[in-house]
Design a protein around this nucleic acid. Structure first.
Lengths: 141, 141
DNA sequence: GATAGAAATGAGAATCTTGATCATCTGAGC
DNA sequence: GCTCAGATGATCAAGATTCTCATTTCTATC
């Protein structure tokens, strides 16, 4: 288990933090709600409170270990920060989330911001559509 | 006062709806939270409940009269729908919201979505930065 | 290793935003 | 003016997230 990330972030290496990192690293869905992580913890027999999950995720976010996305709907989802920045496409039907990066869009964003007198620091771009994937069912989440 | 929009949307022309529309039309800030609208109503002596504000805004949204944005932070903001689609730039310092439209970004979004096998239906793009406006104070909202 | 102190945790309360309920009220057509 | 569907307001409720605080767990130290 990779504990150096935690130490580097100035966070004590504790069991809840390691377990939560482990779930983020190994879950097949890369975008998880706090609740989903909490349920996985319960399922694997860990007695970790929901408040801790939220607290730890917030700390991870501050430390740059994960990033938090606000998709449509009221629950935030968290994903492990694995290097590069990217944006997201969400399927309206099955909730599947895909990642993409497009340099043209990134560049135009910087240009547009500059043109409006803003020093751009961050951005949130989410595309919503229907995925044509054959396995796409309707309304799973 | 323009009541035809309400009628067209199949909504009865009532005092709360007219007042809320009026605030959306005349407020200098074009992006208002439900709370902000509620407070303006109270300030102008109207006895309109917060629940009504939320209800009316949701109806306005369904009718295409306003659109609802989820910026960072937990409160949605509403803006009068005045024709074209556009995206937003938000100042991290003063909370000022500017609108923009960039055909290059729009086109690339469609291309990216198609490339990933998605029929794009909608998107949410918000840029965050520091505005270099001389009047920009820090942390008003 | 045992220990002390700081930091982290867990349980539940609290908060914040938003939607639902239901009795009362209001607007549109007659 | 009258009637009734639709709208409103007060309150309650739900869902997500944060806060509180007593208890527990790490980490550094002896």
């Amino acid at each position: 288990m990779e504990t150096s990330n935690l130490k580097k972030a100035g966070l004590k290496v504790t069991l809840p933090r390691m377990k939560i990192l482990e779930i983020l690293e190994t879950s097949e869905t890369r975008h998880l709600t706090a609740e989903a992580i909490y349920r996985e913890l319960l399922d694997s027999g860990e007695e970790i409170g929901l408040a801790t999950v939220y607290r730890v995720l917030t700390q991870f976010e501050a430390a740059g270990l994960v990033c938090r996305l606000h998709l449509e709907g009221n629950q935030a989802v968290f994903e492990l920060e694995r290097g590069g920045h990217h944006d997201h496409i969400v399927c309206n039907q099955c909730g599947r989330v895909e990642e993409f990066f497009d340099e043209t869009i990134e560049r135009r964003q910087r240009e547009v911001a500059q043109h409006h007198g803003f020093a751009i620091k961050d951005h949130a771009l989410v595309l919503y559509g229907d995925c044509t994937d054959s396995v796409c069912p309707h309304r799973p989440v």
